[in-house]
Design a protein around this nucleic acid. Structure first.
Length: 423
RNA sequence: GGAGAGUUGACCGAGCGGCCGAAGGUGACAGUCUUGAAAACUGUUGAGGCGUAACCCGUCUCCAUGGGUUCGAAUCCCAUACUCUCCGCCA
């Protein structure tokens, strides 16, 4: 949720924000109207309620006939108070609902436009020239099947499309990537966490995932719980309704969890292999910091992600996502995209968002500061996922279908330097 | 799954339908004392709206959550969630 005081004082900033996101700027005026109506209704209710409380005290003191007379009077008032309260509650609910529908305000410098209007910040690492090496590129699934690492058919048999088994070396490789990711995060000062993957509606709503992309999320209706699409949700909820002390610096957590996505609306996209699946694992970095430190913390996240990509010897580029492609919570988002040789395109492997105070306002996460309490800022970012296996297999493939293992992963694979196909 | 107990402020804990945003204690902060610290003593110390852009001040809301009864609810009633104990079942 954005700051209502900011909205009242400078609605133009918010209108511009809506426009840059490709959302309707007229919502701002709806919010303003609802907010004004809410405050008017609140005033009326409060006046009546104050009178009622005052009269109530007289009732308590009065005796006999006088008391009866007072009771008659106060009964009427009670009915009126009740009505006014209902009106005020409804007005408040409407104002909050509208205000919550506004996306976060993009940071200065965020490119305008939609999904295709990102700015490439830089390229790191060189993609291999497979033709020059005399290698016919295999895609990750072909490689994975050769290694007996990925079994899509049985995944479909057991659970349906977009499910898979990681088998043998595939399972080991995923564990290696996630363990290495956890290690990089720990070295960067993040505290490891294994988080719940089912969360309550308030937490899911608080993180901003129940807006436009609600149909991406699995819901367990019988239990009124949601399956998380990332441990960001649980980590944001971790300090909800709390005051956190950030005087010693940001609170940094690295969450390991399974992630679930319905992939509604992506029919036909990335249907082959494990690029886009309903369930995967991820190590996610998350931090709570002071708003004035958020941009620096965000940069730190990006640097940590890049360290991981470099350790895995993957060529990648960094993009600055355009306003229209930010999630509702993010004020700025940097993605790292690894090169995907089989498709000769870039594939997102990390995404880090600065959510400023947007999530913290919704989840009531504040810090006591001089002069009162202030919402904190939240930052999240990927440090490793199952999808990284795709980039690893393809970029490190060799002519015979074997796959080179980057050094950082070897300790987690019993020292293996090469993954050999099973014949 | 069954039975029971509970949920009050940063924490512990009291609370009679009206004088309760809530006793008392702990903690924290400030002061006195002290060379300094500790101890002791004194004082301060919840959050969020609105009136105001901000202070002071005023006012409303908040005693797990949501309803209800009542002129009036932390207190009575109902539902739900969560915690704990016991029994059963089970990875």
């Amino acid at each position: 949720m954005i700051d209502l005081k900011l909205l009242r004082a400078t609605p133009d900033i918010v209108r511009e924000s809506q426009r840059s996101r490709g959302d309707d700027p007229a919502v701002v005026d709806e919010v303003l109207a609802a907010d004004a109506a809410n405050r008017a209704a609140l005033q009326e209710f409060e006046t009546a309620r104050a009178e009622q409380k005052l009269l109530g005290k007289d009732v308590a003191r009065a005796q006999g006939e006088e008391k009866q007379a007072l009771l008659a009077r106060t009964k009427e008032l009670a009915a009126r108070v009740k009505e006014l309260q209902a009106t005020a509650d409804a007005a408040s609910a409407r104002a909050v609902e509208l205000a919550r529908s506004l996306g976060n305000i993009p940071e200065a410098g965020v490119p305008a436009g939609g999904a295709d209007d990102f700015v490439v910040l830089r390229h790191e690492g060189a993609a291999r020239d497979f033709a020059a090496e005399g290698i016919t590129v295999k895609d990750h699934l072909e490689l994975g099947e050769g290694l007996q690492a990925i079994d899509m058919e049985r995944g479909a048999k057991v659970s349906g499309a977009r499910f898979y088994f990681l088998t043998g070396i595939g399972a080991r490789l995923e564990l290696a990537v996630l363990n290495a990711a956890m290690q990089v995060a720990i070295e960067a000062g993040f505290s490891p966490m294994i988080t719940p993957t089912l969360v309550r509606p308030e937490v899911m709503a608080g993180t901003g995932f129940l807006g436009k992309h609600a149909d991406e999320i699995y819901r367990l209706e019988r239990d009124d719980l949601y399956l998380v699409g990332t441990s960001e949700v649980a980590l944001a909820g971790y300090h909800s309704d709390e005051f956190v002390d950030l005087s010693a610096g940001p609170r940094r957590y690295a969450g390991w969890s399974a992630c679930y996505r319905r992939e509604a609306g992506s029919a036909g996209r990335d249907t082959r292999g494990i690029i886009r699946v309903h369930q995967f694992h991820k190590v996610e970095m998350f931090s709570y910091c002071r708003p004035e430190d958020a941009a620096a913390e965000h940069a730190r996240f990006l640097a940590t992600e890049e360290r991981m990509l470099q350790a895995l010897e993957l060529p990648y580029r960094v993009i600055d996502t355009a306003a229209g492609d930010l999630g509702s919570s993010a004020a700025r988002k940097f993605d790292c995209e690894a090169w995907l040789p089989s498709q000769e395109r870039w594939m997102e492997v990390t995404s880090t968002s600065n959510c400023t105070t947007y999530q913290a306002r919704r989840l009531a996460i504040r810090e006591r500061r001089e002069g009162g309490s202030e919402p904190v800022a939240t930052i999240n970012g990927t440090i490793g996922t199952t999808r990284w296996l795709v980039a690893l297999l393809e970029n490190h493939q060799q002519a015979d279908g074997s796959v080179h293992v980057p050094e950082v992963l070897r300790p987690y694979l019993g020292g293996l330097e090469v993954l050999e196909p099973v014949r």
